[in-house]
Design a binder for these strands. Structure first.
Lengths: 334, 334
DNA sequence: TTGAAAGCGCTACCAT
DNA sequence: ATGGTAGCGCTTTCAA
């Protein structure tokens, strides 16, 4: 089955194939009559232009590489949906890669994506070291990180204000009367989340406590496993509230609490971070800090496209505001 | 910033660029000495081959197009993760497109993907008519549908046995003593799910009832809206159990029930379909029919790659077995 | 074993 | 307004 090329349709239309190219690209320099005749022929014989060949000469693939730790995480998939939609509006397509929370795999797919000649890369870094490891490619291809500001090197990123997020969360817990609050999750990759929590603790003279996650990624399962370890190590918990670093962690924690008979919020209050759709489920009703998904997605895409169009423009940062979502997982103490 | 090409490294190595190509492609016909010298140079100056240029001549992009209605749906994102991983093992990359449950958009992205010269397309059809609309492309590019068998045309697909799924679900409900069961969701795109339910109803002389979804996609929100409409139209429901067509629908229904004060499973039993991770959350504990995610993903990918490698081999079907997952959303009647 | 050159489908430049 | 053609980076004959 031979491929139809502009040469074929040039032959049919009795013009040079340069003219066909012009007609299809919409550039001026073709009479309206010729153009519409050519377009009609293309339509009829079902010609589709070859993006690859076009890309070879234009040096632009209209392709964006998207690297996420794990697309099955609702935070990622929600972002991915919005990213794909918004990128599509600008004529970009998405090449999706999971780094499966491995720095090595992250490097691999990054290099692969470069070989694929994507115009730019949007990356949800898997860890704090991702930035450093990827630094050497940053002048070779436009990249924007979707993550908090880690390190001080020169890179574009968009992020929610994680520090502010946990600050308002901890303030909320404090206002409810909580004085013993545990931070539950990863501190390395969400450094600023921990620091926001810590800052408010200090502000009120509370002792900050944390339970560090041994995992490189957040999921219900990991949250559950962590929680079970925590319970095993402590026969009774001295906290009145737990601030989980992500909703996924919180959901796993919730599951573990249910199993060992800890009631939420009667026995202990719980606050999450992200506001994934499942946090609003009945009986779950997790209070949490919301990330502005759609805004983050559009900001990330347009920042990347800006960088693609103007590589010389340096780099930019965009920090979006989080929002407290009060449901019913936190109790007022008296 | 000039691109490094094989010509550059040919110059450095003092060989023709054909030799470089041979060395890199691993084809025989280059002395070991020359090859290792070339490879070392590539390594040193950080050369990465241009997949596009390569694809132009080999006519193979090692790219798979993945079309899903909505990647933010957990069923889709779970599948997408496994698909990406498994495809990656065979050297394929994924181009992700959301059809946003629109037949028109589905057609658009399909054509776009063809223009991108992907080697094959994996599609989660958005509706019953998808197959018919896409039929005309099926001899132009390898396609495998991830969906139940709709219509009788010639196309490859992998699916869970939807009929069997709702059959065992309905049998389960019947065995619990339920005699008035409502089927809740879309019947058009999950025709066989409805029919499995219907068949078991008939088998036991029960009257099948359904509440048809006006939506083209399943989500918590749609399930919730549907449920609210249902409740508004009926002051008291004559059913003892509801079989939701998907877990997402069930979760929305659950939310609505909570709001109007219907207790699950005390007042009414509820069964879902898919077994997304959130169905196992504490207090939710939705009993459901499980789809074998990983198996479906690997089956779909290997079926597609088979078709890519042997386009002349016709088409194939693979129907996987569902499994009942009993949690606590269904009550035994006495 | 290696080199020369054609050609993949297209855009863009230079002519006309 | 249209045609001719070089060339994008690569693989793959065909010769040497």
């Amino acid at each position: 089955m031979k491929n139809i090329t502009i040469k074929d349709i040039a032959k049919i239309a009795n013009v040079s194939y340069a003219t066909v190219s012009r007609a299809l690209s919409g550039v001026p320099g073709v009479s309206d009559e010729t153009r519409s005749r050519i377009l009609k022929i293309c339509e009829e014989i079902g010609y589709t232009p070859d993006y690859m060949a076009r890309s070879m000469v234009t040096k632009s693939t209209k392709l964006i590489g998207l690297i996420v730790p794990d697309i099955s995480n609702p935070f990622m998939s929600e972002m991915a949906f919005n990213i794909e939609q918004f990128a599509g509006e600008s004529g970009y397509h998405i090449m999706l890669c999971n780094s499966v929370s491995s720095l090595e795999q992250e490097q691999n797919v990054f290099k692969l994506l470069m070989g694929r000649k994507v115009d730019g890369i949007l990356i949800f870094p898997t860890g704090a070291q991702s930035h450093k490891l990827l630094e050497k490619y940053l002048d070779k291809i436009p990249v924007v990180f979707v993550s908090e500001n880690l390190g001080s090197f020169h890179a574009s990123y968009v992020t929610v204000d994680n520090f502010q997020g946990t600050s308002i969360g901890t303030e909320y817990l404090y206002s409810l009367g909580h004085r013993n609050i545990l931070y539950f999750g990863r501190r390395a990759s969400h450094k600023l989340r921990y620091e926001g929590y810590e800052a408010i603790c200090k502000k009120y003279g509370l002792e900050p406590h944390f339970y560090e996650s041994p995992y490189h990624t957040d999921s219900i399962k990991h949250g559950y496993d962590m929680a079970m370890d925590l319970f095993k190590a402590n026969s009774s918990l001295p906290y009145t509230a737990i601030f989980a670093s992500t909703d996924s962690n919180a959901l796993g924690l919730l599951k573990a609490c249910e199993e060992v008979g800890i009631r939420i919020p009667e026995d202990i209050s719980m606050l999450g971070f992200d506001n994934i759709p499942y946090s609003g489920l009945p009986k779950i009703m997790l209070s949490t800090i919301e990330q502005p998904y759609k805004l983050m997605a559009t900001a990330a895409v347009s920042m990347l496209i800006d960088k693609i169009d103007n590589p010389e423009f340096g780099y930019s940062h965009k920090i979006l505001s989080p929002k407290l979502v009060v449901r019913s997982s936190c109790q007022k103490l008296d």
